[in-house]
Amino acid sequence: MKTLGLIIVGLVGAGLVYATIDFPPFGDPKSPASLHVSPRYLEKTVEETAVPNAVTSVLGDYRGFDTMFETTVIFCAGVACFLLLRIPRRRSSGPRQYRHRLTGLTFRIKEGGEIFLPLREFEPVDSIWTPHDFIIEKVCRYLIPFIQLFGLYVIAHGHHSPGGGFQGGVILGASIILLSVSHNLRTALNRMGEKISALFSPVGVFIFAGTGALCLVLGYRFLDYQALAALLPGGPIMARSHGILLVEVGVGMAVMGTMVWIFKNLASRGRYDEGL
């Protein structure tokens, strides 16, 4: 069976390589891909959408409909992880113990009991818990605000430089994950609760799809940002640029929320109790 699989893989690979004989030469400016649709994107992006970065204008406007569904894919992934991993009723995980850092007093929490202790002052006492490094904790605390600021910059500056909602959202999400890795899951949960991260993703995608639907309500086609000229200053061309910005903000929110949401579900095995 293994040999058969190997032969099939070899044949398919050979077929794919065989077809490259008829490919246009690599980097050929006369290849069909650079002659048919792309020239309009490159030449008219400023004229038609007032966005200098052609990648952003293609993703956000010309093929914005695809991007909306790509964001929805991310949302689906978040909901799927939640649906499959989250354990709604608290599983009994045995009694747990916490030590007060300053006084050394130890608290025992009964099976299934709530953790009410302020985690800053207590540390869990169990075999899998490892004490956190002071330096890492402090460095990350000072780093995270700047990471988040950079994430916002990447979202907002996608019109002019590489960036946009997906990249900025990932940076924002990573900052929360870093908080959780460097401190612990509960610290991250206190900053951004389960409900908040779970609501961020649908709200983010809703901003995208809602912007499109707003255009439809205003009498234009779905996602035709020109319609926003009725609500925003700057005429129909600038409205396209503004529309893309709105949509990018939605994408950023959705990506950030979903990343954090998936991380929490995976890291705590759906229990939202202890974790990384």
Binding site: Y62, G64, F65, R221, Y225
Partner: peptide, 13 residues
């Protein structure tokens, strides 16, 4: 047929 975003076919969806 329906042009998403108001872009004509080969360019838009």
């Amino acid at each position: 047929s329906y042009w998403m975003g108001g872009w004509p076919p080969p360019w838009g969806i």
